[in-house]
């Protein structure tokens, strides 16, 4: 284990309330750099709310979200305006209900993800308008990056089709490719395996491991599919009703009676222990 200083994301005392409802209450955990951290929990546990706080769609009611880049630069995410979290702190995300630009081609989807780089290269549009060479070469590089990711996702031959025409599993992969095109330090995946069959989710496992290995991208994922969580996560955080109930290695979490109780919905831990004993 590395020391806590090598955490890419440190969440401390995060709380999010909607009116009287506490969606997340006093949550603290950290995600290690270059590791895969999973956030799991039953429906309504507040996982997506945590994601929305991290990626700036919600302003947390209280708490601190600190992101540290490899070069030591730190960002307090709760203070950054939504789009700046992606632009400056380099946090990319996917969505539970896929949000692609359905009427644009796969290639265009991936170029939109490189907007800020291209915007600078085009001299805030003015240089691009007159076709400056600096912009042309930047655009070529952007297309090459898009081509690389399309190839990784086995979507290269469909690059010029509309994203809305893709099958469900392909759309999920394209969304990951789009997030990766923004060259993130932290990739947040909201249920990437939802709706995938066993073979596809096996492929997803390999893909995520490869992304981590090849690009050193830290990954934070929400997942219901335990085969994904248990196989690839280095670290699992379990939420229930907005509160953390377990935190540790997949092995450790799997055997935690509180986790089992939350998932089975049984009354107390003693019953859960009994259930687990019975399973063995």
């Amino acid at each position: 284990m590395n020391g806590p200083s090598d955490a890419i994301l440190e969440v401390t005392h995060l709380s999010m309330r909607f009116g009287g409802i506490v969606a997340v209450g006093d949550l603290s955990f950290s995600a290690e750099r270059g590791k895969i951290t999973a956030l799991i929990g039953p429906n309504g546990a507040g996982k997506t709310t945590v994601f929305n706080c991290i990626t700036g769609f919600y302003k947390p009611t209280a708490g601190m979200l600190q992101l540290t880049h490899a070069d030591g630069k730190t960002f307090l995410l709760e203070r950054l305006f939504d789009y700046r979290i992606s632009k400056l702190a380099k946090v990319a995300r996917t969505f539970q209900n896929i949000r692609l630009f359905a009427g644009m081609t796969l290639l265009e989807n991936l170029l939109v993800a490189q907007h800020n780089m291209l915007m600078r290269a085009s001299g805030m549009t003015f240089l691009g308008l007159i076709g400056a060479p600096a912009f042309t070469s930047a655009e070529r590089r952007a297309i090459d990056l898009a081509r690389y990711w399309l190839d990784r996702m086995h979507l290269l031959d469909r690059a010029d089709e509309a994203a809305g025409n893709l099958a469900y599993g392909d759309q999920r992969r394209l969304e990951i490719a789009r997030a990766m095109c923004s060259e993130p330090a932290l990739l947040c995946l909201d249920e990437p395996a939802a709706g995938l069959n066993a073979r596809e989710s096996g492929a997803l496992n390999e893909l995520l491991l490869a992304i981590r290995a090849d690009h050193g991208t830290s990954i934070l994922l929400i997942e219901h599919d335990m085969s994904v969580v248990m196989e690839i996560s280095d670290h699992v955080v379990v939420l229930d009703h907005g509160v953390k109930i377990a935190d540790g290695t997949p092995e450790h979490v799997r055997n935690d009676p509180k986790v089992v109780a939350a998932y089975l919905g049984v009354a107390d831990e003693a019953t859960a222990v009994a259930v687990m004993e019975g399973q063995r």
Partner: peptide
Amino acid sequence: IRLRRLPIGRAWEALREDEIACRSLGINT
């Protein structure tokens, strides 16, 4: 026609398609 092929034009169209996804990609809407 030129603007459509520049990042700003693509961002306009992306905005039309999905504003939330745009924000998640660091586009200043």
